[in-house]
């Protein structure tokens, strides 16, 4: 019974912060596919983060979202397999930049995915501390988006 509580909490957060930004149609299909995978995939995670941050139109495709992310955030490295798992440093970098979250001194001196992970952990973007190069579940990514949106709205 207790195992269900975090998931229900997450669904509440997702419902409150993520879904209103995404709207319906194309974006809901992406979210559906995203949630069915055991690990969060790169292309869909980039799409959902940028769409929630209102940096791309919700009618854009995942590949268009990746193109836009590369233009906006040039330090985002692309994995060999765009449909493969996304790593903590990429999600952290996208969240910190897309939602314009507070940044540490080292991040301001050396902006990029490495120090974005530190900022994400300080800001509590994940349920528990995460390390660079780790993979994330779809719920971890949605939790991060919800938390980032909450922090942006309270700034």
């Amino acid at each position: 019974m207790n195992q269900c509580k975090p998931s229900l909490f997450l669904l509440g957060l997702v419902g409150f912060f993520v879904l209103p930004s995404l709207g319906f149609g194309q974006s809901m299909d992406v979210v559906d596919r995203f949630l069915q995978s055991p690990l969060a995939t790169f292309d869909e995670a980039v799409y959902i983060i940028l769409a929630t941050a209102e940096l791309i139109d919700t009618e854009a495709t995942s590949l268009q979202a990746i193109d836009e992310a590369q233009k906006l955030f040039p330090r985002l490295g692309l994995p060999a397999d765009l449909r493969g798992p996304i790593k903590v440093q990429a999600v952290s970098y996208l969240l910190v930049e897309s939602f314009d979250l507070p940044k540490g001194l080292m991040y301001q001196l050396f902006p990029g995915p490495w120090y974005a992970v530190r900022e994400a952990n300080v800001l509590g973007l994940y349920p528990g501390n995460r390390l660079a190069a780790q993979s994330l579940t779809p719920f971890d990514v949605l939790y991060g988006i919800s938390r980032a949106a909450e922090l942006r709205d309270t700034e």
Partner: peptide, 13 residues
């Protein structure tokens, strides 16, 4: 760990 697809995590500082 950065390159492997085994879900490894790493930090150094």
């Amino acid at each position: 760990a950065q390159e492997a697809r085994i879900g490894a995590g790493f930090d150094l500082g």
